[in-house]
């Protein structure tokens, strides 16, 4: 018991000495001080928090501008639609007597088909024009 305890104590002492020799204090790199000083001299490049805040601010502004543009487009589209609907209604009301005189009972159907053709034409005109321009560019 005593011998075992003595061996453990001697092993503990030997281990302590071995750890002391093995876990030696690492030398601080000679370049560290120069690096810190250099980084301090150019705060704008190394201040990550400031860079992040600036980039986040820029991104927020871009998003706000994008959202404002989107709202403006939606408003103008809605305005255009309402205007066109009223204009079409007014035109139909004005043209109705003349159409009725010439087309008779076919007037409602003619107006419906005419409106549908006009609407579809407006929907497909812009993409078709873009497609034609692309073909022209490729050619």
């Amino acid at each position: 018991m005593t011998e075992s305890h003595d061996t453990r104590t001697r092993l503990g002492c030997a281990l302590d000495g071995a750890l002391e020799r093995t876990l030696r204090r690492p030398q601080t790199p000679a370049t560290l001080r120069a690096r810190v000083s250099a980084a301090r001299a150019r705060p704008a490049e190394t201040d990550l928090a400031a860079v992040r805040a600036r980039l986040e601010g820029e991104r927020r502004q871009q998003l706000e501008a994008l959202e404002a543009d989107y709202l403006r487009v939606r408003r103008s589209t809605l305005g255009t639609l309402i205007g066109v609907a009223f204009a079409a209604g007014a035109a139909a009301a004005i043209a109705m007597p003349w159409l009725r005189a010439h087309l008779g009972d076919y007037t409602p159907a003619a107006l419906t088909w005419g409106g549908a053709a006009l609407g579809l034409g407006m929907v497909f005109f812009h993409p078709a024009r873009a497609l034609l321009r692309r073909w022209a560019d490729l050619g």
Binding site: T7, R8, L11, G12, A14, L15, D16, G17, A18, R21
Partner: peptide, 22 residues
């Protein structure tokens, strides 16, 4: 940590104090 190291040394048969003397 010391106890764990001593145990690891014992398991590997490296627990002779003379082995670790400088």
């Amino acid at each position: 940590a010391r106890a764990a190291l001593t145990e690891m040394l014992r398991r590997r048969g490296l627990d002779d104090p003379a082995y670790w003397r400088e």
